[in-house]
Design a protein around this nucleic acid. Structure first.
Lengths: 216, 216
DNA sequence: AACTGTTTTAAACTAGCGTATGAAACGAAT
DNA sequence: ATTCGTTTCATACGCTAGTTTAAAACAGTT
């Protein structure tokens, strides 16, 4: 049996299964699904080609397994930020948005995995190698619900639908530079990640504040 | 010689070259670059496998050729919208944003090529099959410059950098539902494309209006 | 030491890809 | 009618992909 619990051992010497997941994380994020071959993966993990099929059943199964592991981390981190900001002495829309977008945008500027995974998430939704519903189920139930509730607390006058749309829109404001950072930097003079973060915070907060007044 | 001018003929009976470009438009948008094989393309265009290499030199060249043709259309259409709104009796930020985002979002809801190409553009930037600089050169020079100037005219108090960032952000507000429309519809109750368009207009306009006051 | 179930290995397999080739068909000009 | 450049065709090539196989290595149990 290919029981995953068998692979959780000391930590010093990781098993083939875990080494493959690590390799998948690095290579898929860097070169995408089609750009990464099973031979790339197995040489990176120092194991035989057959190991992928033995442990996971195939290339796509390894892919979605790695994906689930990463999404879980991203969601937990985001939830922690919401809790921290909302339980601070003076929570504000600005602080909430800043807490949300800073880590990913900084990460993508430094080519750290945290940012690359988010890029890959978008790429994945567009390329449809994996059923997205299975992967994003938690995102909807947990994150959108929690964040839109926070928006309703801070920006008075938002109803449920408006606040959910606002969450999507702030996500848009973050994802856009996350995907197109190089264009921001080369097309807009004197534009670095700090400038972008400040802009997103101001732009998003202004939108939420002014949203109510602009009915119809 | 593979002269492209030869292929511009009556229009009733299109040549192989044009049929291939049409097939490329349909198939690449639907299934992506890797998901579409040269055999898919040539059977869709009713021609021999070798035709792609003969007329374009290879699969990627056909891909970027189709891409250029589409981008040109998108840019021309967007510029026309700017001109129309800005020369109307009472131009407003709302009208400008609405003119910009309505066509693409409506198109993607109806699965029309206009919207699918925009999705493909994003996918392309992320997958890097083609040098993006070559494709997006016009976008920068023409569109961003023109739209940010319009923003400066309408939303007083914006400097050059702010207005450029605002253009990127409104682009973000449009691209996000364009990419994730299914999630909007299923996660947010009672959400259709009209609701989304209204939201983007209100959200974006409120952001630009309130932007100035929120300095630092 | 022999048995047992699991994991790893080298090698082969099948399928599909993009591309290349050389001959045949075509069309206009002489 | 012949020539000549262009286009189309059937077919084959070389390669790499993901997967499978069957034997060997391993670890734990009796």
């Amino acid at each position: 049996m290919t029981d995953s619990s068998l692979s959780e051992r000391s930590g010093l010497e990781r098993g083939v299964r875990d080494r493959l997941l690590d390799a998948a994380e690095r290579l898929f994020c860097a070169k995408g699904f089609h750009g990464t071959s099973v031979r790339d993966l197995t040489t990176e993990a120092n194991c035989n080609v057959a190991a992928i099929n033995y442990h996971f059943g195939g290339k796509v199964e390894l892919y979605s397994e790695m994906f689930r592991r990463q999404i879980k981390l991203v969601i937990e981190e985001s939830m922690a930020v919401i809790d921290r900001v909302m339980s601070s002495p003076h929570p504000s829309i600005e602080a909430l948005i800043r807490g949300w977008v800073t880590a990913p945008l900084k990460a993508v500027e430094l080519n750290e995995p945290r940012g690359l995974v988010l890029q890959l998430m978008v790429r994945e939704v567009l390329n449809r190698q994996v059923d997205p519903e299975r992967i994003f189920a938690d995102l909807k139930e947990v994150f959108v619900a929690r964040m839109s509730a926070a928006f309703r607390e801070l920006g008075e006058g938002l109803d449920v639908q408006n606040s959910q749309l606002a969450v999507f829109s702030v996500d848009a404001l973050m994802l856009h530079p996350l995907l197109f950072m190089p264009y921001y930097r080369s097309w807009i003079e004197g534009c670095d990640s700090d400038k972008i973060i400040d802009h997103v915070v101001r732009f998003g907060a202004a939108a939420i504040r002014g949203y109510r007044g602009n009915q119809a």
